[in-house]
Design a protein around this nucleic acid. Structure first.
Length: 287
DNA sequence: GCCCAGGATCACC
DNA sequence: GGTGATCCTGGG
């Protein structure tokens, strides 16, 4: 890949394994929407548009500084996706990789991921998007880009000051109290950044002390914002995959080690390919 | 009007 | 330590 900067845009050339639909519409992030040939949304408190054009992926607005300081890491561009699973001959995973080619992890801001996946509990993607957007409008800082109004994701302090009632108005339902409670803990000094360095087990243990954060939500936060590519979120779909493909019917706890053994240290990324392929194609055996 | 999908929690063994 | 009822709401 090489990068060219022109008119506040970054042109990523010779980039392989980059598909905007598989990246922004797979349920890992909730604030991007489809445009003519890509996606646009708000991340890291800024507007970003990512389009697929002839011979290049284009980021806008994007200076060299923006690219190097924010988007390079956000879009996980350091990772060599072409060779991630070349060692693994598992048929299911091969199929998943083939179907969802170009899917990449997004390295999101930890607090945004945390709140987003608390909202995701017992919920569907469409509703999750709606709730988060209303939350951003109500509690997030407003900014303007090219004449349009956008909202940053709320800070922990702003969210912690929200009343349960306001969050219910956003559509959060019974999760409202989880959100204010957890936002308060973060605002009071619970460090999410620190979790990047304490190891998977310890980080997960600490995350699940927060209200509304169980094993699945914790794994999502670890995978999508804290750099743990071996975190393996066990939701209903991946359990269906694991049962149908490998006859696995054990407990979620055992599924984690089963997956690590089967797919290697990047089992969480394997999970994304399997999940995306299985879910969108409904390749489910009749039970 | 009813039922379903989707995870965390809490009360209870 | 494991199980099952319950939470909310858009959509079929």
């Amino acid at each position: 890949m090489n990068v060219e900067y022109k008119e506040n845009k970054a042109y990523l050339r010779d980039i392989k394994n980059f598909d905007t639909e598989h990246i922004f519409d797979n349920g890992q992030a909730f604030r991007f929407t489809k445009t003519k040939n890509g996606y646009e949304g708000v991340a890291f408190g800024r507007y970003l548009r990512v389009t697929e054009e002839e011979n290049a992926v284009v980021l806008y607005p994007c200076t060299q500084k923006d690219f190097e300081e924010i988007w390079y890491n956000y879009l996980d561009l350091a990772r060599d996706y072409a060779n991630l699973f070349s060692h693994c001959d598992d048929i299911g995973l091969q199929k998943g990789c083939e179907y969802a080619k170009g899917l990449r992890l997004l390295n999101q801001q930890p607090f945004e991921a945390l709140i987003s996946f608390i909202v995701s509990a017992n919920n569907n993607i469409k509703r999750i998007r709606g709730i988060i957007e209303k939350m951003c409008v109500m509690f997030g800082e407003e900014f303007t880009f090219e004449g349009k109004i956008y909202h940053k994701f709320p800070t922990p302090t702003a969210l912690s000051k929200g009343s349960g009632l306001q969050l219910v108005e956003c559509g959060a339902g019974y999760r409202a109290d989880y959100i204010t409670d957890t936002a308060k803990k973060i605002a009071e000094g619970f460090s999410l950044e620190e979790l990047k360095t304490v190891g998977y087990e310890e980080a997960k243990k600490r995350l699940t002390t927060l209200k509304g954060v169980g094993p699945k939500v914790a794994d999502c936060v670890l995978l999508f914002s804290l750099g743990y590519s071996d975190a393996f979120p066990c939701d209903v779909w991946i359990k269906r995959v694991m049962e149908d493909l490998y006859g696995f019917t054990g407990k979620d706890m055992q599924l984690y080690s089963f997956a690590k053994e089967k797919f290697g240290i990047h089992s969480g990324i394997a999970q994304q390919y399997l999940f995306h392929w299985y879910r969108t194609n409904q390749v489910r055996k009749e039970k």
